[in-house]
Design a protein around this nucleic acid. Sequence first.
DNA 1: ATCTTCCTCCCGTTCAACGGAAGGTTCAAC
DNA 2: GTTGAACCTTCCGTTGAACGGGAGGAAGAT
Lengths: 289, 289
Amino acid sequence: MANQSNGASAISRAVRILEAFSYEAPFLTLTEIAQRSGIPLSSTQRIVTELVGHQLLERMPDRSYRMGNRLWELGTRTPGAIGLREIALPYMHAVQARVRQHVQLSVRSNLDVLVIERISARDAVVNASIVGGRIPLQHSAGGILLLAAAGDEVLRGVLRRGLQPLTPDGIQNEAELRHAIATAEREGYAIASGRIFSGSRGLAVPVRGVQGVVVGTLTIVEPNDESSPMPRIELLRRAAAGVSEALVRSYLPPGHPDAPPGGAYRSLVRSSESSMEYLEHLLPPLAVR
Amino acid sequence: MANQSNGASAISRAVRILEAFSYEAPFLTLTEIAQRSGIPLSSTQRIVTELVGHQLLERMPDRSYRMGNRLWELGTRTPGAIGLREIALPYMHAVQARVRQHVQLSVRSNLDVLVIERISARDAVVNASIVGGRIPLQHSAGGILLLAAAGDEVLRGVLRRGLQPLTPDGIQNEAELRHAIATAEREGYAIASGRIFSGSRGLAVPVRGVQGVVVGTLTIVEPNDESSPMPRIELLRRAAAGVSEALVRSYLPPGHPDAPPGGAYRSLVRSSESSMEYLEHLLPPLAVR
DNA sequence: ATCTTCCTCCCGTTCAACGGAAGGTTCAAC
DNA sequence: GTTGAACCTTCCGTTGAACGGGAGGAAGAT
């Protein structure tokens, strides 16, 4: 015998099981789930069966499991990420139509950058990010901006975790990190050259919501060549200004003629529009290269 | 005394709480959550606190809660919906560039159509669907196709739930539903005129994966006018064929030179491409109106 | 036919979950 | 400043849902 439970709540176990799945391993057998989550097989079986019942997991014909549609559906109701995404999408398309590279929208999630949307070109440079993926704040241009906006506690968290540079050009120590943050704050944009891959760099500007608070960043990932990135920074700035304006406008409608202080985010507009003239209209012509 | 638990598992309670949030009510206070989910306040408090710890919920400065980024992130790992979405997106853009209306991608989730992606024009007709939203199968053109592909048990489920037509043009009885399904099967497309709103109609074609199995549908929602929808059906057909081909191709890479029978869906390609020439390339010019 | 791997079910034990109630906190109105 | 109402947090004794080892069953490989 000796079957006392081990101090983990049912919910945390369920989350552990869900998190066993990843982009690299989207299909797992029961045994694999048990191993990855460190939960005994029979308990795993019980919880997994319940999750399948709720359609948070789905069983495939070959008996493996994958994440269920309901999970995706619930995620879809997340207003923070999704509201911003829908508002930013047309602007991202407009940017992408001018620079044929990756254009990304990210927010901060704890100590990481969380990529909310990405639009890519076929011939764009290699890029570590995928939608729904995470990158430690210190590695990315957008992360530096988000770090600058987040305040000291988050910075301490990043330092505590360790900088772990990915390339020789990565940020090696606290002084370099603080310098990068100060520069980003002063200039209002960030450039990260070869910090993730030597051949690419990220250009990022902040996206601001009500009262100028930084809610995310727009990023271009492009080849790390000799060309000046400044025209593209300017393009990003205009796009971010457009997104901010649309975002702030989206806060108002539900009755109040002005932004209510307590419940400003209680309503978000969803509308993804798309057509070339419309994109032209969003971002007037501008030489970017 | 008298505090026995009431027969609901912790996980099902957590799900009930998450499902209290919706597109219409993305921000809820603790009391509202308790009311909507029917769980006693103090229990709600305990579970909600735990969910916040896992970042499945997030607490706002005004003490209300919303869904957390982690939930969105987990949903992102759902390969079924997301893999298909990423593959279909460029084709959807290509269709949208020609018909200035709503273009939607949906899959079946139980007895409902689940809208995975939607691209809209500013001046498009009214449309009930939102991304992540559900519509009972019998109400939509795509739903009829998915119903045709799903087999008898699902059909029985729909009949058991009741048809509940939304308009006078909606499907009123079993005979009409069976007729619509038979027609869709014979023709390979479905048209639903005024079944959701009198002023609009849906045109849908199936998207097929390996071995021709229907994995979803592409739909155009357009004004319910006198024009013949056939050119747009043809456009959808070509787009669906392109998606199917890209989808089937995406199953193969991970080693095997041919589709492995047991683990065909073990890998999915993610890449969203976008540029006008590319869209032109995907779908050759075609008069649609 | 045999072996291995993976899965399902059973069941006695126990502790995490349960929720009523009491006490705080917040905010607005007057 | 005071009052009141709405909303939230914490406490704690009770208890049944969750727990997991183990036996037995499927499925697939050799």
